[in-house]
């Protein structure tokens, strides 16, 4: 009787390969995800929270409408 694994050309290692691919994918996008989140927090801090006069005046209406503490 022929071994099914040999017929389809797989030796069982493909299971580990898939897991490894998934893990390395997770790892490869962990740093970009953190980078995106930090960039996003920096952006909303700038538009919504920094109290510098020019920024505050330009963003005034948005800060009120978006529910940020304004002044």
């Amino acid at each position: 009787m022929r071994n099914l694994k040999q017929v389809v050309g797989c030796d069982g290692k493909e299971m580990t390969m898939t897991t490894m691919t998934a893990k390395s994918l997770t790892a490869s996008r962990f740093v970009p995800a953190i980078f995106a989140a930090v960039l996003g927090i920096a952006l909303i801090t700038l538009t919504g929270h920094v109290q510098a006069a020019a920024l505050h005046d330009a963003a005034h209406d948005v800060r009120h409408a978006t529910g940020f503490p304004c002044h």
Binding site: G40, A42, L43, I44
Partner: peptide, 12 residues
């Protein structure tokens, strides 16, 4: 700008 900041946090 504000919602782009939120979007960056969202996709992360």
């Amino acid at each position: 700008l504000t919602y782009t900041g939120y979007a960056l946090i969202m996709v992360a």
